[in-house]
Design a protein around this nucleic acid. Sequence first.
DNA 1: CCATATGGTCTCAAAATTAGACCAGGTCTT
DNA 2: AAGACCTGGTCTAATTTTGAGACCATATGG
Lengths: 145, 145
Amino acid sequence: MTRLRGSNPLGARKALAERFQTWSVNAFDLSLCPVRGVLDRLGDKWTTLIVIALSHRPQRFSELLRAVPDISKRMLTQTLRDLERDGLIARQVFPTKPPSVEYRLTSLGESLLEPLVTLVSWAETSQAVIETARAAFDAREPVPA
Amino acid sequence: MTRLRGSNPLGARKALAERFQTWSVNAFDLSLCPVRGVLDRLGDKWTTLIVIALSHRPQRFSELLRAVPDISKRMLTQTLRDLERDGLIARQVFPTKPPSVEYRLTSLGESLLEPLVTLVSWAETSQAVIETARAAFDAREPVPA
DNA sequence: CCATATGGTCTCAAAATTAGACCAGGTCTT
DNA sequence: AAGACCTGGTCTAATTTTGAGACCATATGG
């Protein structure tokens, strides 16, 4: 087949499988697998969206609220706090009349952009295939109303 | 520091920012941003763990239950169904005495491994920095008992 | 004959998330 | 000057999601 430099799934599979080997000793035990703590936050449903929104430019609270339409204030606040706690974003208050708060990516936060781009690219590329698979599955196994 | 080829955050930032530009027209509107549908599933907390576990080798239901220790049967079933529906994994039943079911990555599922590796690598690299940031944040803003 | 193992499903409780009221103050409109 | 509206949040109550564990049918080993 085509043997693409470093982009064949086999290579990735091996790389990941190797890492997994070292983890499998502790079998993903939450307290023993430090990566889980990091990965869990990324799986926050809102985290990636917010990071992507901030990749564009620093934004204020209500801008983010508009940028990610279906997030609730509560979750936006909480996700921003978590992100700030992890050092991925920085919070800065401006003493305007109604004080405004700006959030921006830190350099650590920006370093996340690169892995995120590859993931988003994959999502874009695979989206059509996935839709097809979903439709096929639903046709096989009709979901009851 | 070291200047690695093509791994500077600036490049990634620009790449992502450009993509975001095209999305920002619809401002992440769930129904209009197809990537969200895909990204949401990846942010399932269990999805990535299961895919990683299966990157090792095909595994049966109860093997996965053991591999991802703190998942409940309920969530394992559901996550596997979703993954199957999206065409990322395949389910095969063997007519053994108590029938066993094996789950394996499809080629689409394997294609996810590559982006996942970069993400996991980032998590591993950044983990220490993040822990430090968390500690510093908690010291500043002591979480009440 | 009882325990165990298989892959799930079902129910109920617990946890996470949402929607939306509310706040303090200042500006803008009328 | 009264009212509406803006800021960034917090708080409560209702809804949704998740978790823990019982349960099932069948078959094997002891």
